[in-house]
Amino acid sequence: MSDHSADQPHAHDDGAVHVHVHSVRLYLAVFFTLITLTVVTVATSYVDIDGLIRPGTPAGAGGFNLALAMVIASTKALCVVTWFMHLKDDNRFNAIVLASSVLFAGVFLAYTINDTAYRGQTEPFNGVYVRPDTGERAPGGIDRVISGEVPYPGIEAPAEPESGAAAGAH
């Protein structure tokens, strides 16, 4: 009785809740699909797909392993929300509520990473103390090396800043 015509989703005469009771077999099928996908995603994690496509990619830096794992995870998530969480039978509005939260989480993620991942490229002197061209203190430059960490090449402790340049930085 999954009668979800948008205008009158549950226009039953008695006002009672009518749902379609699915078979145990359907739930088992969803479960075994989820288990299969879990095994697949663990198996693919042992294969260095990024290294195969672009040899020499440092571990964790490529996107193909990540993308594949996320596609599999999203397929699993879709199975869970569609059948286990009954979004297929529900009022469509509930699906819209979930989709909108996922959309906004995506906006949050995309805009934040679009900012943080490209900072060094928009400001070429980020990560250096002193601009090599002018000798001024670099705006947004990292001004200390965190103890115990290997500094990036190019970061050097500033030589005695000239008083004129230091004052001009503000």
């Binding site: 039953h12 009672a16 939260s101 906004f104 949050f108």
Partner: peptide, 29 residues
């Protein structure tokens, strides 16, 4: 009627779950 209560309860739960998605999204970001 029962179906009105059912739909309201489900919508409320889904709004809570949407909040949960956003709640976790901070750490995922």
């Amino acid at each position: 009627i029962p179906v009105q209560q059912f739909e309201a309860a489900k919508l409320g739960m889904w709004l809570f779950l949407a909040q949960e998605v956003l709640f976790f999204s901070g750490l995922f970001v």
